[in-house]
Nucleic acid binder design. Structure first.
Ligand code: SF4
Ligand code: SF4
Lengths: 155, 155
DNA sequence: CTTACGCGGATAGTTGACATCCGTGATTGA
DNA sequence: TCAATCACGGATGTCAACTATCCGCGTAAG
């Protein structure tokens, strides 16, 4: 799985507790990752409509929806894409006893099972929102640090 | 996801309906895929204890357990490995407000959520066995073809 | 002893993830 | 007005993993 997924989720959590636009520079420094590459992930979030950007001198990223309306699944799919991990290559149509395309209008058992598993995976991620994660982080961080982080994000 | 997963599942289904060892040559022909590369996947299944091999002149592969005791999950993990798709890189320890390693003894919310999703995925795959898939295939295949396939597998 | 077969290592080609750079356009503050 | 800052998108490079092939070895049936 793409490492940018982890970065993107963390960025969303940070953005949910910030009170203004945060630049890619700050987000990258905060997490200790490559600025230029993180920008790619943030652009994906932007295209997916999860964050909004303000260009110019004091530009940066802001969550475009309240944190409790952004599921973890949305962030993951924004970075990883929406294609299923399991790609069926229709090998049942190959070989000496290959089925004809007419017989393959509906997916076979293998593809069905894998699709069901991925549905379960997505359903699990859909249950959790960025707000849930942010609340957890806030509960584990003491008050002075939270204030310091807030000030650091907006210099 | 590794394409060899699809091949391996199909091979297990075929093996469950065969009455003797089937060579990699036959399995590859049957599915119309590369013989040499399929052999790699079959070797993974062998190392995982899902199939057993008989070497020598009329060697081949046989399921080492009854088909209803082999879950799809076991086959997938044999090919793909057992590591989680989401790798946490502990970026919360980075940056100016990075947490100390002592504070990170237990996994954070993000890693927990992703792990729960993967558990749901595995649980879904664990519910289905090779026997289930074989039964589905058998129900969709007419009698004469089944006999012909059985004969073709063991020439 | 010959033959067919699985096993494991070595070896490439190809793809996709990871990472960086630069030019463009937009916005703000001097 | 003008320079600085920042997001955006394209182009490019690097690297690991997947895909695929080949060969020598050991094994067991005939
Ligand atoms: S049997 Fe299922 S998984 Fe296999 S090729 Fe057909 S649709 Fe795909
Ligand atoms: S916060 Fe969670 S996902 Fe992020 S680096 Fe720490 S353990 Fe990993």
């Amino acid at each position: 799985m793409n490492a940018g997924v982890e970065w993107a989720i963390h960025c969303c959590v940070v953005l949910s507790s910030a009170d203004g636009p945060v630049s890619a520079q700050r987000l990258a420094e905060f997490h200790g990752v490559s600025r230029t590459y993180l920008a790619k992930s943030l652009q994906s979030l932007s295209r997916a409509g999860i964050v909004e950007t303000t260009e110019g001198r004091v530009g940066g990223y802001v969550l475009s929806r309240p944190a409790d309306e952004v599921s973890v699944l949305a962030v993951v799919q924004a970075i990883e894409g929406r294609e299923a991990a399991f790609r069926c290559t229709e090998i049942r149509q190959n070989g000496p006893f290959g089925a004809s395309p007419e017989e393959c209008v509906r997916p076979c058992g293998v593809a069905t099972v894998m699709a069901a598993a991925e549905r379960a995976w997505r359903a699990s991620l859909r249950e959790v929102t960025i707000a849930d994660l942010a609340g957890q982080v806030a509960a584990e961080t003491d008050e002075p640090t939270q204030v310091a982080v807030g000030r650091w994000l907006r210099p």
